[in-house]
Design a binder for these strands. Structure first.
Length: 296
DNA sequence: ATTCAGGTGCGAG
DNA sequence: CTCGCACCTGAA
């Protein structure tokens, strides 16, 4: 009499230690990345060519689907588990507005995403909405990304998108962004644009480089610098953050995106990117409340 | 039907 | 340099 497990199901668990106030689900669902899916109390997605599932339990993250230490170290880096969130939030909490938001948003880390996937994702995000962005990225992956043995697909490499006829891209709901994405895919694949070189550049120089790309303006450049290159002084200004800053810091006065960004970068300095995430996440999860009660 | 989405590129002043 | 406008497309 032996209890047997199905031989084709091998659950391999790894545990990553985390420090408070790290919050996995807030970090994965606050709009930095678009390919994670809520799965019970955790999240599921593709990392380093493997289908994995993550779930936080107190000061540990249980990882299903990764066995070797190299991959789990890469995952810890991707998740930003090393970031000193406690001291960052203590500093941000000196701001009156953020002090009231933080109880609802605490624990958001800045992911260290793959630059190409991040760049492509935020080109898709321009003047778009989140459900459609997710749909587009899922379709791109399904059609042009490598299929994985455990199901699911990798995000397509630049080469895979470089030669796709525009019609194929438009079928992924890219609309007018199709030529932008294809041009950028070609530039990246041909090495005319070196994504790795940006790691060595300052925020300003990296930004200048990214702004050369078609479909990349100030907002998308800041998202890539923040979510892939760890330039935490970046402050992407989207419509939501713009409204929030106008209401909470300028008594509803209209400001240009440029003014909002300059204001935020002066006020929050090297932690501006974190501040942006707390503002954005609060708005996304309390959009209704925000409409009726302009203050948190 | 009209409006709104994580903006950007373009031409005009 | 700043300003105004068009823009694929699907969901409410």
């Amino acid at each position: 009499m032996t209890a047997t497990l199905p031989m084709n199901v091998t659950h391999v668990w790894t545990v990553l230690p985390v420090r408070r106030p790290y919050h996995l689900m807030r970090t994965l669902s606050c709009g930095q990345a678009f390919r994670w899916r809520a799965d019970g109390a955790g999240a599921a997605g593709i990392f380093a060519g493997r289908k994995i599932r993550l779930e936080q339990r107190g000061t540990a993250i249980a990882v299903e689907g990764i066995e070797n230490t190299g991959a789990s170290e890469a995952l810890a880096n991707y998740l930003g588990l090393d970031q000193p969130l406690r001291s960052i939030e203590r500093e941000l909490g000196r701001d009156r507005v953020l002090a009231r938001l933080l109880p609802h948003t605490s624990g958001i880390a800045i992911l260290r995403q793959d630059p190409w996937e991040c760049l492509a994702s935020f080109i898709v995000s321009a003047f778009n909405n989140i459900p459609k962005i997710e749909m587009t990225l899922a379709r791109l992956s399904e059609r042009f990304g490598d299929a994985l043995s455990g199901g699911g697909h990798r995000f397509p490499i630049a080469e895979a998108l470089a030669d796709v006829p525009e019609r194929g891209l438009r079928e992924c709901l890219l609309g007018y962004r199709a030529p932008y994405l294809r041009s950028v895919a070609r530039l990246v694949h041909s090495r005319a644009f070196n994504l790795k070189a940006l790691f060595a550049l300052s925020y300003d120089d990296g930004r200048r480089m990214l702004l050369e790309l078609p479909g990349v303006g100030d907002k998308v450049a800041d998202c890539v610098l923040l979510f892939a290159y760890g330039k935490t002084e970046a402050f992407p200004v989207d419509v939501w953050v713009k409204r929030a800053v106008e209401r909470w810091y300028f008594r509803g006065e209209r400001k240009t995106s440029r003014e909002i960004k300059t204001f935020a970068q002066r006020r929050f300095g090297r932690h501006a990117g974190y501040a942006q995430q707390h503002l954005f996440h609060y708005l996304r999860t309390n959009a209704r409340r925000f409409a009726r009660h302009p203050s948190p």
